[in-house]
Design a protein around this nucleic acid. Structure first.
Lengths: 236, 236
DNA sequence: TCAATTACTACACGGCGTTCAGTAACAGCA
DNA sequence: TGCTGTTACTGAACGCCGTGTAGTAATTGA
């Protein structure tokens, strides 16, 4: 039962985000300017303040949307591989992450870099939710590998007190049987998937390395070893 | 034999960089504005164009300086540990990298993130040299561990043609006996050290994880396992 | 039909990088 | 010493930017 006004309003809000996204993919995160968006919409910059209280609010909305899309991709990649194949799942999620990142470098920057000059991330919100979803995928992968992975850990003396209470509570709700050391491992997995991709997106691998994808794949395979889920036969 | 003019000029150039650096540490990379620098120096913004052709040129100079300082720190950390202790060297360099990064987050951002809106890294220059130096430290660590590490690789079918010719030539000059697969491994080591640190600096680990340093240390220890240089006794 | 809400414009403020004509101080040379 | 070319800088301008604020036109609900 949205009134005509609400509908128009929602459409305008969407259009603003869409234009902002396009501007960003064309000219990088810094190309997101209220004036440019308004120009494309045939409006004045001030009019946008009826939709977003400030430019950072708009950026927040974008971040939430993008991060959510990334989480979707990771979940889809995971679910495309059978539960019986934990190694395949890790590789799939990892590759999906990199593929998305190198295909959408500006969006990667917006999420994982300093989005904009002086920007400060808000406390809660949809962005935090999406970040948690993406992180939960990795935690799930670790959970599946935990029986094997736990034996290889060099530091398993973790406690739930080593994490933020709220964060710990959410995790324990989703994975009741998972010990805190597994969560720590999941964070490390996150970092490991993030490292090479960040270097590549920010142009530190190319052009020295001709095929970063291969490098990344080797890293993922090594990661499966850390998790203890590499089968006897190895991928080429 | 620098003339009075040259001396004053060099001093002014240094002062500009120093003020820019301070502004950045106080207000983030975006606080580097020609007008603010000029204001502090009692000059006009236009006057700075006699020293740097554009703001990005100034930022380049900063990047080169910062990157070089980082490379110094890494080299010092490596040389503080005996050559007989490859694991200790890896840990030292890794810890030095993280310590520097979390202690100088803005500088880390400037080097490894998108330094400024619309900034484009130049081809050669001092920044590239410093990046190479920092990378060479890691390559050296891998070189020392190569006898053990090579046995654990899942993909050793690397060729020098997999790298940029100039890059490959420089590496082969420094490490004549090192095979290309080792260089690939060094890149992966770089990515591995980079990942968790980048996440932490950009605020993705805190406050969920209370002690990112511990997480990072575990990752480094795991890295030494990948390199095959973990001694029998493990660090706590 | 009328009052209230909404969406928007127009304008202003201060900030930014960058350019450019003009000016004052300096350097080397006679 | 005086002259000349070079250098370092100013001041004003241009066109961007985010952000407020006062006013106006349209739409809404009663």
């Amino acid at each position: 039962m949205p009134s005509r006004r609400e509908r128009l309003r929602a459409e305008a809000s969407q259009e603003i985000k869409a234009i902002a996204l396009r501007l960003m993919t064309e000219g990088g995160p810094s190309a997101i300017s209220l004036r440019a968006i308004a120009r494309e919409m045939g409006m004045t910059a001030g009019a946008l303040y009826g939709y977003y209280a400030t430019r950072d609010d708009l950026v927040n909305a974008l971040i939430a949307e993008i991060y959510s899309a990334l989480a979707d991709k990771e979940e889809a990649a995971r679910d495309a591989v059978s539960e019986d194949d934990p190694e395949g799942r890790v590789l799939a999620v990892g590759e999906a992450f990199r593929t998305w990142a190198v295909g959408h470098p500006e969006e990667f920057q917006l999420i994982y870099g300093d989005p904009l000059p002086g920007y400060q991330a808000p406390e809660g919100g949809a962005a935090a939710d999406a970040e948690h979803r993406a992180c939960a995928v990795l935690t799930g992968l670790v959970a599946d590998a935990w029986p094997q992975a736990s034996k290889r850990l060099s530091d398993d003396g973790y406690d739930w007190a080593d994490f933020d209470p709220g964060f710990a509570a959410v995790i324990r709700g989703e994975f009741p049987d998972l010990p805190p050391a597994a969560v720590a491992l999941a964070m490390r997995v996150w970092g490991r998937m993030h490292g090479l991709v960040a270097l590549e997106v920010y142009g530190h691998l190319r052009p020295q390395v001709l095929d970063p994808a291969r490098l990344y794949r080797a890293e993922l395979l090594d990661l499966t070893k850390t998790l203890g889920i590499t089968p006897a036969g190895r991928a080429r």
